[in-house]
Simulated assay, not measured.
Amino acid sequence: MSNLIDFKAILVIALIFLPLERLLPLHAEQSPTRRHWLNDVVYLVFNGILIKTGLLVVIGVAMLAAHRLVPDSLTAAIQSQPVWLQAIEVLLIADTGFYLAHRTFHAVPFLWRFHSIHHSIEEMDWLAAHRVHPVDQILTKSASFLPVFALGFSSSAILIFTLVYQWQSLLIHSNTRIRFGPLKWLLASPQFHHWHHANQREAYDKNFAGQLPFLDMLGGTLFMPDRMPEKYGVDDPVPHLYHQQLAYPFVANAAALAPRELASETPRER
């Protein structure tokens, strides 16, 4: 039954984003069946199993220790708040965790091997948002969700954040020219996140937040000019098939995967 529900969700998402990308395209020449789209379908269908399993293990083990560290009085105070306020707090805490983890994946060469899979996207769309190595996703999501679970936020508040995060993640990767106007400084938009994926020197290691651009403003990593990127992807030798990409971080040449700021003599290697 859970698999059936997942496939229904996939169908709903496709029925929303496929027409949206045709009606308001950023790159009108880009086809829904662009290069490597079948590989990203594999990620969409199968990657969730590995990620959910890993999250259950990592967060489950961490929570055993966290419950001993968080006072019951703090948990009670958090749970006494209205759900809407808890949801805002969850967003702030979770996206701060995401920002820090995401920035670390760019800065540490071994972790970049996993994250480079996601940055190998050369044509942005809603489907490509799913191309994320399970290790990358498990650790990054753990950094987001562990603090809010440990502090005892209500399941309703966490669910609200999860739904907003999932839909916004698809939107910011999508091949759409949707602009947020003044809200672009408050909420992550396609304009904000497309620059994070840009294979252009000026945009390297920018825009790490998942939902709140002001975190990048505070961290000195915000880059959001009015124009859109000309090129996406990485120069790392990332293979094109799902099973090869799963293995790639463990067999890749470490010298070819240094973070960009540590590899100034090589083209777009991070």
Rank of each mutant, 00 (worst) to 15 (best):
A198E: 12
A62K: 09
K141R: 15
P32Q: 01
Y204H: 12
K52V: 01
R34H: 06
Y99F: 15
T140E: 07
D235C: 11
E29Y: 09
S174L: 00
V61P: 04
V61G: 04
A252M: 04
V42L: 09
Q86Y: 07
F153T: 06
N199H: 08
R270L: 14
P239T: 03
L91D: 11
A62T: 09
H119F: 10
Y43I: 03
Y242D: 02
L56H: 11
A77L: 13
F46N: 04
Q245V: 02
F145Q: 06
S264P: 02
R35A: 15
L139G: 06
A157Q: 02
G97T: 02
E122F: 07
A14E: 06
L91P: 08
L44Q: 02
A252T: 03
L111N: 01
N199R: 15
W167E: 00
L186Q: 00
V42A: 11
F105E: 05
D236A: 14
L74C: 03
R201H: 09
T162K: 10
E123G: 09
L24V: 09
K8Q: 10
I78P: 02
T162Y: 10
F161P: 04
Q86I: 09
R177I: 01
S169R: 07
V90H: 08
K206N: 10
H36I: 10
L15V: 13
D205W: 06
Y232F: 15
K206C: 12
F145K: 05
E230Q: 13
L246C: 04
A129P: 04
I78S: 01
P71V: 01
A256V: 10
K52E: 11
W167D: 00
Q168F: 08
V61K: 11
T266H: 15
H115R: 11
P239Q: 07
N3A: 14
P190D: 00
L218F: 15
F46G: 09
V42T: 14
N47C: 06
L23H: 00
E29W: 08
H102G: 01
H106K: 04
I59D: 06
H115D: 08
H240E: 15
A129K: 05
L146P: 02
N39E: 15
I160F: 14
S120K: 12
G54Q: 08
V45R: 03
V251E: 10
Q79E: 12
M124A: 06
V83A: 07
T96Y: 06
H196L: 08
R34T: 08
L183H: 01
G54L: 05
R34P: 05
I49V: 15
R68G: 13
L257G: 02
F105Y: 11
F98R: 09
P190F: 00
I49R: 13
D226M: 07
I59L: 14
P237I: 06
P71D: 05
N39D: 15
A66Y: 11
H194R: 07
R35N: 13
P225W: 05
A94V: 05
L26M: 13
A263P: 03
P82D: 11
A143H: 02
P71H: 05
I88K: 01
T176N: 03
L171I: 09
L146M: 10
P229M: 07
T221S: 15
H67C: 03
F153V: 10
S2T: 11
S169C: 12
A256P: 02
H130F: 15
Y242A: 06
S174W: 02
R22C: 01
